[in-house]
């Protein structure tokens, strides 16, 4: 069974230490129990990432198979977390798209230091990944119709909303207005980026202001919520779609489950804050499987146009 995740720790830009613990320990002990006798020096290396295990049902398949299946578990339909590049490839015709505003980077304006200086944190991620920040914007076609997509990367400080995401979001809106294109935002974020303090909070107002302009231009805004979407995202553009849609089983909410549990001092009911729960309470238009996402988007665009 999938272990409950502490979303907040992702916002701390955690080096996966939290996610590792449970499973890593388990494997380590299993190895002891089974009495593996091969010395480490003689160990045969398996190419990393060849196999993938579903965190929901433990089904094991090759990563190629998983990728072909759009990172959805072939057995239980669990939607693995994927990044902006994967979404762009899934959505756009012939995997053909243009990335915009990738020259904008975060910087430490406040001189913020928690367990690590913010600038150092940024430098490390920039060195480790190709990502400049937690959101990327691209334009292309879906079934021949133009669309601008802004998608988040959770591995960049928990997909947190800071000045750069706010600015990219805004420029994407300007691009939509200039080229009369619909706007899709794919959210996957723990919330606001605390290292940017009040500046990150103001991005909620900044992005909402831009959505107001998009609305006045009569262009559709589709908000796709994926696992997980919390805090400042759901308290701004995440919930402001002309259509709010979500992937199945995604955790979506304002306050994180840990905080709520500590506040009310009660266990949370099963399915709480999942996509299906939000649909049931009237905050989503529908849930969309990743496999039909492309077709659905094309259909939405046609419906709004026609």
């Amino acid at each position: 069974m999938k272990k409950d995740e502490d979303f907040d720790s992702n916002l701390a830009g955690g080096e996966d230490e939290n996610n590792l613990t449970g499973e890593a320990k388990e494997r380590w002990f299993r190895r002891l129990r089974k009495g593996i006798l091969t010395s480490t020096a003689d160990k045969k290396e398996t190419p990393e990432g060849l196999w993938s295990k579903c965190p929901e049902c433990n089904y094991i398949c090759t990563t190629t198979e998983l990728k072909e299946n759009l990172f959805v578990c072939p057995k239980c339909n669990y939607h693995h977390r994927i990044g902006s590049e994967d979404y762009f490839e899934i959505i756009f015709d012939n995997k053909d798209f243009t990335v915009h505003y990738d020259n904008i980077r975060s910087k430490d304006f406040l001189g913020f230091t928690d367990l690590k200086p913010y600038q150092k944190r940024l430098d490390e991620i920039h060195a480790k990944t190709d990502l400049k920040d937690s959101m990327r914007v691209a334009s292309g076609n879906v079934h021949g119709q133009g669309l601008v997509v802004a998608a988040m990367d959770f591995e960049f400080i928990g997909g947190s909303l800071g000045s750069v995401m706010g600015e990219k979001f805004s420029r994407a809106v300007d691009y939509c207005i200039e080229h009369k294109l619909p706007y899709l935002v794919i959210s996957k974020s723990g919330g606001a980026r605390m290292m940017e303090s009040a500046f990150s909070l103001m991005q909620l107002a900044k992005t909402s202001g831009k959505l107001s302009q998009l609305s006045d231009a009569g262009l559709p805004f589709i908000s796709l919520l994926t696992d997980p979407t919390f805090g400042g995202i759901s308290a701004s553009f995440g919930m402001l779609g002309d259509l709010n849609i979500a992937e199945p089983g995604a955790l979506i909410g304002f306050a994180g489950p840990r905080v709520i549990k500590e506040t009310i001092k009660k266990d949370l009911p099963p399915g709480f804050q999942r996509s299906e729960f939000l649909l049931d309470h009237g905050f989503l238009d529908f849930i969309v499987d990743r496999k039909v996402l492309r077709d659905k988007l094309a259909q939405i665009i046609t419906l709004f146009k026609g």
């Binding site: 304002f254 306050a255 709520i260």
Partner: peptide, 17 residues
């Protein structure tokens, strides 16, 4: 904003947004 169970049911995020 109040981080409660019912607040989530009634859409705390949506209300603020």
């Amino acid at each position: 904003a109040y981080p409660g169970l019912e607040a989530e049911e009634r859409g705390q995020g949506e209300a603020i947004a």
